[in-house]
Nucleic acid binder design. Structure first.
Lengths: 341, 341
DNA sequence: TTGTACGCGTTATCAG
DNA sequence: CTGATAACGCGTACAA
């Protein structure tokens, strides 16, 4: 347990025969240092395996060099992509990423704020549905903690954000089904607390309306973005008379569940039932048949959002909100409806 | 951008009309403070929304209150469970979790060490395969950074660890197939750099040997724990003449791939081919048919490992290594082989 | 039971 | 271009 004490800036200064401040200048790439001195200092740093003490830096600069990532237990692949993108941008920076999954953003805003304050974060990245939570953002502004929003769907302009166009994406997915000839299309909505659920429904309805198809309320079922909730919703849809010839699920987990539900009813996918997902998560390639789905560039979004956050932390002006493109991936879970229907 | 300056311990002291040291005592629950004073201080803290400055605390105590989690891009569900368990244990503690996915532990030990040092971690949790990396552990000991190991398979006793019995688990899975009547069983190994791959192979061979079955080398294929690698491996196995009647994949992602490969060959699962996975990840319930698999208590393991780490950080003696139980979950991907074979 | 002086490692300020 | 000195917010050692 003899924790070997780390070399400090003073040790380096002594070895390089300069003052501590000069070492500090070298460490922070400040100007006004001779090349000769610079190299001497650098050698001493290497010899002593010197690493600046982040706590001390943080103390004087009142920075923790910690950035939080707030999200709410969505699917594992979503979380991992989120983290990947955020970390990718952080590579080479001094900041570290602290993960902060919360049970429910609504669980008590002030508790979350207390969490953020006690964690001494410099800034936070807000993933849905936290990114749509007005109260949370208000509190963050009050305590002066910068944030960036990933996939917000409402209250735009309340902070830098990166998103995709959920309405357009859902519209595209629905059009794909319409073009295949489907007329009776079931929808499995996502978690109502995620505003994306509504946006996607709107897009779907727009596409159907444009094709002159009315979406009966009975064809709209609600899920929670989980496999199990999707399974229940799909069963209800398939019990209708007549059942839909296609189901548009608002994420891949629920779409996978729809396939399972179809199998329970003895229906073949895509022959008897077409299924469309959303997200292009791992699951979409693992199920059979592989899902037609919308690719949502989660990793890119997290990367860009983190980038915006770093800009803000450097005191640079906030850039404009960013919208990233989506993509309809047509795989094998969709086909024209059977002739007779 | 007017970052409101946070209240300090001095502000609280002034308001409560005591010295800063007394406030410090209250904050840290030290003895020798009157109840009356205590409550007065607590009120002041609340009024000022005081939170101790972690950087300052860390500076004097030479602690960062940061714990790292090192892992190497395994399946998303594994990562998420790992994080969940670790965070669960951290709930209510002052420590925060910093995620540190690395490309490859072997990529250069010293780079990883540099990463850990510059991140100023108090301790690290090592997930496989980092948990089996002798060089890394040696370096960690040298710089005096405590660590705990999750699922190590060799070099036991080199540091506190939590594991399951991979050999026994694989044995159990293989016995299940043997009991169903399978004699020609294919194996898809995991990433060779994960020692668990070998352990699981050993268990499999032991079970087969006990049943008097020899495992021909052609029946052993290697994958990388990913769906795609599993797909390639399964295709090779199914191209054998005769093909195996069962496939034992060393994780669920590869097992799911085996199901897909079977479908490509026009084989039904489990009628024509039984498939067993490993991990009980989300995927196992999402594919069709749901996978017979081994439940690996990843979340519990992470929880326990974090617990051990906290003990070490408190200076308490290291507890004994922990071994957690596994469980064979029989679902619908396994059945007796067809009579004719 | 409570308070005072000092130091943790770093950077900002301002002199040299 | 370089260095001395004073903070940053808190805990430790020692007094009172």
């Amino acid at each position: 347990m003899t924790r070997p004490k780390r070399a400090t800036i003073v040790d380096v200064a002594r070895m390089a025969e300069v003052s501590a401040k000069t070492v500090s200048r070298v460490v922070n790439n400040e100007p006004h240092v001779t090349e000769a001195v610079k190299t001497r200092v650098r050698e001493a740093m290497r010899a002593l395996r010197y690493h600046p003490n982040v706590a001390a830096q943080g103390l004087v600069r009142s920075r923790s060099y910690l950035i939080g990532l707030v999200y709410e237990k969505p699917s594992p692949s979503y979380v991992v992509e989120l983290q990947k993108g955020a970390l990718e941008r952080l590579h080479g920076e001094r900041f570290r990423l602290v993960v902060l999954p919360v049970e429910s953003v609504t669980e008590r805003e002030d508790e979350i704020i207390a969490l953020l304050r006690s964690a001494a974060l410099d800034a936070v990245l807000l993933a849905p549905p936290a990114s749509d939570h007005a109260g949370l953002m208000k509190e963050l502004r009050e305590v002066g903690m910068p944030f960036a929003r990933i996939s917000p769907t409402r209250l735009l302009g309340q902070g830098p954000s990166v998103a995709m166009d959920d309405v357009a994406a859902a519209q595209e997915a629905a059009e794909h089904l319409v073009n295949l000839g489907h007329k009776r299309i079931g929808v499995i909505k996502g978690d109502p607390s995620h505003a994306a659920s509504d946006a996607r429904l709107v897009g779907t309805m727009q596409a159907l309306a444009k094709a002159g198809i009315t979406l009966h309320p009975e064809l709209i079922e609600s899920g929670l973005f989980t496999f199990d909730s999707g399974l229940a919703a799909a069963r209800r849809l398939l019990a209708l008379d007549p059942p839909p010839t296609a189901i548009l699920a608002q994420n891949d987990d629920m779409a996978a569940a729809a396939i399972t539900a179809a199998r329970e009813c003895g229906l073949l996918v895509p022959e008897d039932l077409s299924v469309v997902g959303f997200d292009d998560s791992d699951i979409s390639r693992v199920v059979w048949p592989p899902l037609t789905t919308i690719r949502q560039p989660v990793e890119d979004m997290a990367y860009r959002a983190m980038d915006m956050l770093l800009h803000v932390l450097r005191g640079e002006p906030e850039g404009a909100d960013v919208q990233l493109g989506h993509e309809l991936l047509i795989r094998r879970s969709t086909a024209p409806p059977k002739a007779g229907l």
